[in-house]
Amino acid sequence: MKSSDVDILIIPGWSGSGPEHWQSRWEARLTTARRVVQDDWYKPSRHVWAERIVQAVRSATRPVVLVAHSAGCSAVAFAAEHLHPGEVAGAFLVAPASEKAKGAVPGMGPDFIAHRRERLPFPSVLIASASDPYCTQDEARELAEAWGSEFVDAGDSGHLNSESGHGPWPDGLLRFAGFLKSLSAVPQRLSQ
């Protein structure tokens, strides 16, 4: 599977990933990528954010691959319980935020803090750094296990955002291309 074969939905976390963030750069570079826009990037709500993802998935015309960062990873897990088998080909999850980190964010909806810990109904990879200030690697490994995600150790990479030097993040783009290739079968879109 190549990026031109799928609809890539970019799922930012709290604050929406600014213009220098790798998600924004990928969105500009990958022709089939588009951002799932939330009404308020500073007040995440479990139901609102999940519903916005579900709507974006259902309006896609090709198999969907989700690309989430930080609290966006939680939003993907919340949305997963409302998605039908075959609607999502896979999820590329990067630097999830811990419950403690989410709880410390002003405006974070109380319903958004706790992680949904059920297995995701699609293949996924979770990439986490050993030096992420918002989630320890042990916490990230626990989430990967709960979600059924392949765990990838990103080494000493901070929060894998522009502040930690991962604006363009070419290594991530290479890993994303490898993830796309690993998705063995393109799921058929369900009738809408």
Rank of each mutant, 00 (worst) to 15 (best):
S162Y: 12
E145T: 15
F92P: 04
H82I: 00
G72S: 03
I113R: 00
I127A: 10
R117A: 09
S74D: 02
E99K: 03
K100F: 07
G109E: 09
V88T: 03
P110G: 05
I53E: 00
L143R: 06
L126D: 01
S70Q: 02
S129W: 06
A146T: 05
V65Q: 11
K102F: 03
A97G: 14
A56R: 00
L180M: 14
A95E: 04
G158P: 13
A95R: 05
S74F: 03
V94S: 08
A146Y: 04
D111E: 15
V88F: 02
E145I: 14
F122R: 08
S124R: 09
T136S: 15
G165H: 15
F78P: 04
S182I: 12
A140D: 03
S59F: 08
A146C: 11
V125Y: 03
Q137R: 12
S149W: 09
A89C: 08
P63N: 12
A60M: 10
V76Q: 05
A177Q: 13
L126I: 07
R62T: 11
E87V: 02
L93F: 07
V88M: 07
T136C: 05
G103Q: 07
A130W: 07
A146S: 13
S98P: 14
R175V: 00
V54W: 04
H82R: 04
F179I: 13
P63S: 15
G86V: 01
D138I: 06
E139G: 08
P106K: 04
H166R: 05
L126K: 06
V88R: 05
V88L: 07
R62G: 10
L173P: 00
R62V: 11
G107R: 01
S59Y: 02
R58W: 02
P96G: 08
T136E: 01
R175C: 05
G158Y: 13
S182Y: 04
R117S: 08
A177E: 14
R116C: 00
K102C: 08
A91N: 01
N161M: 10
A91F: 07
H159D: 10
H115V: 06
G90L: 09
V125C: 05
